[in-house]
């Protein structure tokens, strides 16, 4: 009986891991396929999308390095995310015309149940962006999400993106992470 329970628990964990990974792969495909409206729909209406700014600190201040309170690359609610999507979809966002080619590689996925049914889901990413003839930029970082179950899938109730750059080594952050 106990062995059966252990097996069931292990299978549940495997299934959860599989579902979260599949969710992230599908999300990455939406961004890379430039289906930004569908991507936006993955977020709950009360979502918060935060990309703090990293700072090069002394070693003993490192825990303080992930973001200066009060200033962030992105600190958006759904309506602001929607504006960013509308801009991209306007056909007149010249920085993305011709569109850059983006590839979101998602890895190091970890998920655990929170009380109340939501998930704490963590992942790492590498985004490769190619634009015009020879502009290549690589963004790496980590994401900490709260995923809210939605039928067989999830919606993103909050996302914090930790970019691995203090100075953004790119012309712009015209990228969704």
């Amino acid at each position: 009986m106990s062995a059966l329970q252990d097996t069931r628990t292990a299978l549940d964990a495997l299934m959860l891991q599989h579902r979260v990974e599949q969710f992230y792969y599908a999300e990455a495909a939406l961004i890379d396929g430039r289906d930004f409206m569908a991507w936006l729909n993955l977020f709950t209406d009360d979502t918060r999308y935060l990309v703090p700014i990293h700072r090069n600190t002394a070693v003993n201040e490192f825990s303080d390095s992930l973001g200066d309170a009060g200033l962030a690359h992105f600190d958006d609610d759904k309506s602001v995310l929607q504006r960013r999507v509308i801009r991209m979809a306007s056909g007149r966002a010249w920085a993305e015309d011709p569109p850059s080619i983006q590839r979101h590689l998602i890895t190091n996925v970890q998920a655990r149940q929170l009380e109340g049914g939501e998930l704490d889901a963590r992942s790492c990413f590498q985004v490769h962006r190619y634009r015009l003839d020879r502009e290549v930029e690589v963004f790496t970082g980590a994401r900490v999400d709260v995923l809210r179950p939605d039928g067989e899938s999830f919606r993103i109730a909050s996302r914090t993106v930790y970019l691995d750059h203090a100075t953004v080594l790119a012309n712009n952050l015209n990228v969704f992470f």
């Binding site: 700014i53 700072r55 200066d68 309170a69 009060g70 200033l71 962030a72 690359h73 203090a166 100075t167 953004v168 080594l169 790119a170 012309n171 712009n172 952050l173």
Partner: peptide
């Protein structure tokens, strides 16, 4: 308000 935002 907060720190500095840098890019190239």
């Amino acid at each position: 308000m907060g720190g500095v935002n840098k890019w190239i």
